[in-house]
Write a protein that binds this DNA or RNA. Structure first.
Lengths: 213, 213
DNA sequence: ACCTGAACACCGTTCAAGT
DNA sequence: ACCTGAACACCGTTCAAGT
């Protein structure tokens, strides 16, 4: 074949297909050859569009973050903005949980991830938070959201009553968790988000005080 | 050589060496052949002690969790116990951050991880939390702690002033974050832990009420 | 500019052969 | 019981050769 008159590949198509493989079979299942097969080309062709596999994973991660709604900062009270952003952030990550370990390494040079960090930090500083606190809040929210998407808590428990019986006196019903995966993880996230924002709002009143309107 | 009269390997020695390689060079650097070389044997020898590489990673993960102090449950007020456990949990994970993505997949069949889940859940239920809430609290604490250890927030920002200048108006000082990695991550964790436990304590008073002594 | 086949130095795992 | 060499089907990446 050599070079076709119309390019067979594009960065966008590569990223979309990589995302589909990672979603369906996990990070470990994504190899260059496998991805190439899925795209109808040979492995080395991909190196015309990305320098390394790492660059492909970065592009997948950034495309996931592109789904996060950061328009809330500046438009709503910081408590409301933080809550809506955290929900949107979690929704984006739980739609693609297998890429979370890669994405949680930080924004690096990924433009969408940097734009998100900029919006969050800027929103908090504009709301009156001291810069150091704004950094901490951005960090701790990422801890909580990334942790919640990294692996389901409920699915982490094997569905085998024999495993828990006798040995772990309080876990006698843990084998049922997997059946309620979604509501357990959702309930835990909701409770943690409430507690976090409640705790931060109380601190805010001490640190920043009520601002005159 | 064939079989030596004194076994060259033991599960313990394999786990210790695997942990050292993962700590020093990351999860991706740990291959069976590399680990075998480090242990002075050939690759296939390891399969006399572990059935798969996955089992080795499970053993590394469980050894990390073994360092977490779960003796606090039942000995202290649940707020104090939760706080001390979370700190100890984070200390254990941040000592071995590269294994966190594996470990955060849940306890599976790892005995130490199951014992920890049992202690946390039991401690909360004994303190009067309804079972469903106790599950949620165990989950959300894992989200926060695992997220905080998964990747440094501060190190996630590249040390390159040019990257942020102009493009990200609020991140003009982000290139300095890496220099303060430890205090940024520690400050964010401390703030989040305070907010979480404060928020949960307020809920506790609504849900459980004050118990007579 | 963009795709290919061949090649390099790697993987995890199996298995028969040794003691 | 426990270590070995050879082998299998894989990896990510490079590169000269094609159009």
């Amino acid at each position: 074949m050599a070079r076709p008159r119309q390019a067979l590949l594009s960065r966008q198509r590569i990223v979309a297909t990589a995302t589909a493989v990672i979603d369906a079979e996990g990070l470990a299942a994504l190899s260059i050859r496998r991805l190439a097969t899925e795209l109808g080309v040979q492995g080395p062709s991909l190196y015309n569009h990305f320098a390394t596999k790492e660059e492909i994973l970065d592009a997948v991660a950034d495309a996931v973050i592109e789904q996060v709604d950061i328009s809330v900062f500046g438009r709503f009270d910081w408590r409301v903005a933080l809550r809506r952003w955290a929900r949107s952030y979690r929704d984006a990550l739980t739609a693609h949980p297998n890429i979370v370990p890669h994405l949680a390494q930080g924004p690096g040079r990924r433009p969408t991830a940097l734009a998100m960090a900029d919006a969050v930090y800027g929103g908090l500083v504009d709301a009156g938070w001291p810069p150091a606190r704004a950094t901490h809040i951005g960090a701790l929210m990422r801890y909580f959201v990334a942790g919640s998407a990294l692996g389901s808590f409920a699915r982490g428990f094997v569905d085998d009553p024999q495993l828990y019986a006798d040995r772990y006196p309080h876990l006698t019903r843990a084998h049922l968790l997997a059946d309620h995966q979604k509501s357990v993880d959702e309930g835990a996230f909701a409770l943690g988000l409430d507690a976090l924002i409640d705790g931060l709002a109380r601190l805010y009143e001490d640190v920043v005080g009520e601002l005159p309107d």
